[in-house]
Structures are given as C-alpha cells and as structure tokens.
Amino acid sequence: MMLDLFIDLSLFTMLVATGIAIVKMRRLFGVTMMAGVFSLLSAMLLVTLDAVDVAFTEAAVGAGISTVLMLSTLTLTSRIEKKPVHTPWIPLLVVTVTGAAIIYGTLDMPHFGDANAPAQVGVAAQYMERGPEDMDIPNVVTYILASYRGYDTMGETAVVFTAGVGVLMLISGLRRRRRKHPKDEGEVG
C-alpha cells in the first residue's frame, strides 16, 4: 500500500516536472525529447494501473513514433521557439478555467476499481465470463478487440488508414500520374 503510494507520487512528480521543463524550454529539440520522457512516464503510470497493453502502445507510439515525427517536423521549421509577444495572463486564465472544469468533471467519475462502474456492469462482465470457452485465447484484451469488438477495430484500422492517406495528400508531394503527351513533356500536373 505504502509502496504503491510512493510509486504513484514519484511518477506524478516527475510528470509535473517534465511538464514544467517543457514550458520553460526554448530549444525545440530538447522539448521534443522531454515530450518523449513524458510519454514514457505516462506509460509507467499505465503499467501501475495494470493496463499493460495501453502502456505498450503509449511507449511505442508516444515515445517512439511521435518523437521521430516531431523531429522530422523540426527539420522543416525553426529550432528555437519564438518569445511570446502577448502577456501570459490570458492563456493562464484559459488553462486554469479549463483545468478546473476538467477536475470538476472527474468528480462524477466512478472511483478506481469501483465494482459498480458502468464499465464493469455492461457487456464487459459477459465478455470476461464467456471469453475463455468461446475463444480459448488467454489474453482478454486481444480477444475482445479482435473478435467481440472486431467491427470497432476494423473502424480503427480504417481510421489509421485514413490518417495516413490524409498526411500523404497534404505533404508527400506525390503527383498525379499522367499519360505522356509529347506537348507537356517535363511538366507534371
């Protein structure tokens, strides 16, 4: 019990420290690296919540791919953040109000591990109960995602596909293939 509390507190302290460091830094290369650290810390928090699959994804996507993509973006823009021209008070007010609203919203959420939480009393209980005989697959997350909720996961895959197509259309510089006419040789549409 004490150990859990200690781990939670130290992880959250490091998370906040990383956040403050990101705000303070001006060199965007360092900011990118700190964002990766932030993702890794979040992944560790998810491990303490026993959500290993989510932690895995967070570590791979948040710390791995996002860092690379932000670095690739950095090579296309400037490396140093500009000094803000406005006073920081209005953004601070907006952040405080939004944060307060979010915290107020969490008050209505069920407690951690609450047996009567909506997530526990819905179909999840049935999935857990019938899964082992229906599927014969030990990993609950896998069989719920790929089989019981296979339709949703197909949607997710389509979302990933759509995101990729969107990025390619915006920045890849691919050009429409055109049949070669002798006239517009060398000119690409």
């Binding site: 596909f161 990025v167 390619l168």
Partner: peptide, 17 residues
C-alpha cells in the same frame, strides 16, 4: 496497415528535405 501508415508518414516528412 499500421506499418504501412507509419512508414509512409515518415517517408512523407523525411523526403521534404
């Protein structure tokens, strides 16, 4: 799909310069 999308996005960014 995920491999293709991630690599394509990386290619798209990295071949700009």
């Amino acid at each position: 799909t995920v491999t293709g999308v991630m690599i394509s996005i990386y290619y798209a960014f990295a071949s700009r310069r």
